[in-house]
Write a protein that binds this DNA or RNA. Structure first.
Length: 264
DNA sequence: ATGACTTGTAATACAAGA
């Protein structure tokens, strides 16, 4: 039996409920991890989400910013979250399925405008967040479990993870120090970079196209910011991988598109 | 040349995204 797992930064759940319904109808994921829901738990659109047919709904949101949620067709044995960098800013949720698979849904800080940790507190927060993730992966011995770490990690670590490597080396999201932090997270598990397990590093692979750059999608000015990382025990279970680029052409889309993994 | 847009909040501009 296959488990289909999806991650999607929807950039406001309430603005994107119709897109989520369309994605569910077309991709039929068993578990959906959402980021940037931008809605408090009190205002969560329970009725619209219930109509999608996911009996298990785990939410961890706040008003206006950030926010994560997990929808599951499979029964959950455990639901959990933890505070990162001492801030309860709704960037993480964890569930364990009844069969033992652990799913960690993350929204890593974007990092602000300047890639300078002394001048930009948001960039320092981002690097500290990634460091804390790597420490957690190592200390909790994630490699001993069947675990997936996924979400909007807000770093495009490889040259082919952005549309213009040279031009973007000094842009937040693609600086060498951020790529090093991502590499440390991968090594700390160790964790498999599922996207690059299926798509060779020689080929461009993107999951985000900005709103501000005119016709960024049409020109394919993309970045790979959304990731699925898997513990080594799952290596033999990785069956298929797909980036649902087409959602970026839908009317009033999120700037991120869904990333999907099939696990045996 | 990440400038150009989109979102939420709250009151017509501002913060934030990356």
């Amino acid at each position: 039996m296959t488990l289909r797992l999806a991650t999607w930064n929807v950039n406001s759940l309430r603005k994107r409920t119709a897109h989520l319904a369309r994605f569910v109808a077309e991709a039929r994921p068993d578990v959906i991890c959402l980021q940037e829901t931008k809605v408090s738990d009190a205002a969560f659109p329970h009725d619209e989400i219930a109509a999608l047919g996911y009996p298990e709904v785990v939410i961890h949101g706040q008003k206006g910013y950030n926010g994560v949620a997990i929808l599951s067709r499979r029964p959950l044995a455990k639901r959990d979250k933890r505070v990162w960098c001492g801030r309860d800013d709704r960037r993480h949720l964890c569930v364990r399925l009844a069969d033992g698979l652990e799913v960690h849904n993350f929204y890593v800080p974007s990092g602000g405008p300047t890639p300078d940790r002394a001048a930009n507190e948001k960039f320092a927060h981002k690097l500290d967040f990634l460091t804390e993730m790597a420490d957690w992966a190592a200390r909790s011995r994630i490699a001993r479990r069947n675990a997936v770490v996924l979400g909007d990690l807000n770093v495009a670590p490889l040259e082919t993870d952005v549309w213009n490597h040279k031009r973007l080396l000094r842009s937040v999201g693609h600086t060498p120090v951020e790529s090093e932090h991502m590499a440390r997270l991968h090594a700390a598990g160790p964790l498999i970079d599922v996207g690059r397990h299926f798509v060779p590093a020689e080929q461009p692979l993107y999951t985000w196209w900005g709103y501000r750059f005119p016709q960024s999608y049409q020109r394919d000015y993309g970045w790979r910011l959304d990731h699925i990382l898997a513990s080594p025990k799952l290596a033999g279970a990785l069956k298929a991988f797909r980036v649902h680029r087409e959602t970026r052409t839908w009317e009033q889309p999120s700037d991120h598109v869904p990333v999907v993994l099939d696990l045996a």
